[in-house]
């Protein structure tokens, strides 16, 4: 009798089953959305990298029929969150605050801003094959330099109205270890072309600014990100000897589909208002 009663008690009513099923369903859907976004985000990176790889190595005569699939990321910093929009998809960007990954925080800090920029820089560098690929045309009529915009960083109007300067992005990149690795951001962003010593610079670890000095304007560099500004993070590839008409170059171009091996690219982080301070012969995306 007691046993029967307990069994009856243990049995769930239809309503309870429906509620539990609904709860499980909602949790699963939410998890699927979250994971879907994570996977989509990761797959976007891989799709871009594959397209870069494909385009870089399918250049008969220095010209590839393939297209790059690397859309721009528009990052907007808010007081308590960061939104990242790629195409029509918008996601909340996660950052690590006090050791915990989160997409909400109490207030925007220097660390959060730098973390986001560093993360985007790492992704951009990874997508572009760490400066080893030139995913742009290299035939005789191709531009000497070509750029691709990875991310644009902006701040919500409230933050823009009372701008705060965050100093020390170079230091952050130099000292911060990339999660899950033993490398700092600066070490990663400068390898391996840097090690060839062909180019004394690969990553521009500062922001290019144009400032008014008296009656003239001057170009300066800055280690500061201001919440009053907009910044672009991009990749610039050089196509050094495209138009060189010497024998070796011509035959390298003919048989390898690209000119010499000294091709390289750099990452740039620039104040949006000074876009022309970088020599981009073309902006791909």
């Amino acid at each position: 009798m007691i046993k029967n009663h307990l069994l009856k008690k243990a049995q769930l009513s239809t309503l309870q089953v429906i509620v539990i099923a609904l709860a499980v369903g909602i949790i699963l859907i939410m998890a699927a959305i979250v994971w879907g976004n994570v996977i989509k985000n990761k797959s976007d990176i891989e799709v871009c990298k594959l397209s870069v790889l494909g385009k870089s190595y399918s250049k008969p005569g220095g010209k590839s029929p393939l297209q790059l699939d690397c859309p721009r990321n528009y990052i907007t910093f808010y007081e308590n969150q960061i939104l990242s929009r790629t195409g029509t998809r918008e996601i909340k960007k996660k950052v690590t605050v006090k050791g915990i990954q989160t997409d909400k925080f109490k207030e925007l800090t220097k660390d959060i801003v730098f973390q986001t920029i560093a993360d985007e820089a790492r992704n951009c560098w990874y997508k572009m094959g760490e400066g080893k690929f030139v995913p742009f045309d290299q035939n005789l009529f191709a531009p000497t330099t070509a750029c691709l915009l990875c991310s644009s960083f902006n701040f919500e109007p409230k933050l823009k109205d009372n701008p705060v300067d965050y100093e020390g992005i170079s230091l952050y990149l130099n000292e911060t270890i990339i999660p899950g690795t033993e490398q700092t951001y600066a070490e990663y962003l400068q390898s391996p072309v840097f090690q060839r010593q062909r180019v004394p610079w690969v990553f521009i670890p500062f922001v290019v600014n144009v400032v008014k000095v008296g009656d003239t304007y001057d170009v300066t560099t800055s280690d500061t990100i201001s919440t009053g500004g907009t910044y672009y993070l991009g990749y610039q590839a050089f196509n050094p000897t495209t138009v060189k008409w010497n024998f070796i170059d011509f035959f390298t171009l003919l048989f390898k589909g690209q000119v010499r091996d000294e091709i390289y690219g750099i990452l740039y982080l620039i104040n949006a208002d000074n876009m022309s301070a970088i020599n981009c012969g073309m902006l791909y995306n």
Binding site: K59, P60, G61, G62, K63, Q67, R72, G87, T88, F136, D137, N139, L140, F141, A142, P143, A146, L253, L254, F255, G257, M282, L283, Y284, N285
Partner: peptide, 28 residues
């Protein structure tokens, strides 16, 4: 060889692709 030569001497249409990409971004 022919493909290579055509590739080398033909005009790069990358500026066209880029212009179209930028146009798409603007219209989006």
């Amino acid at each position: 060889l022919v493909i290579m030569l055509i590739g080398i001497f033909s005009t790069s249409n990358q500026n066209v692709d880029s212009t179209i990409n930028n146009y798409k971004e603007l219209t989006r």
